Amino acid sequence: MTAETDLIKLYSGQILALATDMPLTGHLEAPQHSAKKRAPLCGSTVSVDLNMTDGLISDYRQDVKACALGQASASVFASHVIGKSLDDIQTLRDQLFAMLTADGPVPDAPFDGYQVLIPAREYKNRHASILLAIDATLSALKTT
């Protein structure tokens, strides 16, 4: 199989569907927390705005400028981020990083939708983009 064929397989129909149907896009009018992160290798960026209530994310919006893998990841993330704590997001980040870099298992439910990105393990240059929405959210929660 050629590298081009492998890359075409990587961008599966499921990944492309997630990328085109991303929830919680845009910006909040008056967010409590905001951050923007950039993946230096590919130039992808994600900006997030969020509000917290009783230690849980109560509102969330994202502006994603990334490859289909980064968009798909942001889609899975946004589908389940409401109601999560800082610790929940950190656990997800650790699990997804292990899945991508150490053949770890798929993150725990409700974030098990990340299984569609298992083929991206072989593409280390895409890992930062896949982690970008999570990293921006962690940055927003830890700096404000």
Rank of each mutant, 00 (worst) to 15 (best):
L16I: 15
A74H: 04
A72P: 02
S129N: 11
K142F: 02
Y60E: 08
I130H: 02
T101A: 11
D49Q: 14
S85C: 08
S139T: 15
S85V: 11
I15C: 03
L7N: 01
C42T: 06
T143L: 13
S47N: 11
D108P: 02
T20S: 13
D112H: 02
L56G: 01
K37Q: 15
H33G: 15
A128V: 04
Y11T: 13
Q14V: 09
H80V: 03
D88G: 09
S85H: 07
P31Y: 14
G104W: 09
E122W: 00
I118Q: 09
K84H: 07
G83C: 03
L56Q: 13
C42M: 09
D63I: 10
S85A: 06
E4G: 06
A72S: 03
D135I: 08
L7Q: 09
S12P: 15
D135M: 14
C42N: 04
G70S: 05
A128Q: 11
F97A: 02
S12D: 06
F111D: 05
A68H: 04
D59A: 13
D21G: 06
L138A: 08
Q14W: 03
I57E: 07
S47H: 14
D59M: 04
L18S: 05
F97L: 05
G70P: 10
L86A: 09
K36W: 15
V46P: 03
F77Y: 08
D108M: 04
M99D: 01
A17P: 06
V48R: 05
M52P: 07
V76K: 01
K9L: 12
G26D: 08
A3Y: 06
A3P: 01
R61K: 13
A30D: 14
A17M: 13
Q14T: 15
Q95P: 09
S34V: 15
S58M: 08
V46I: 10
G104L: 11
H80W: 01
L50S: 07
N125C: 01
D54K: 02
V48K: 04
A17T: 14
L50K: 08
L69A: 03
A78Y: 06
D54I: 06
V116K: 00
A109Y: 06
Q62H: 12
K84S: 09
D6A: 11
G70T: 00
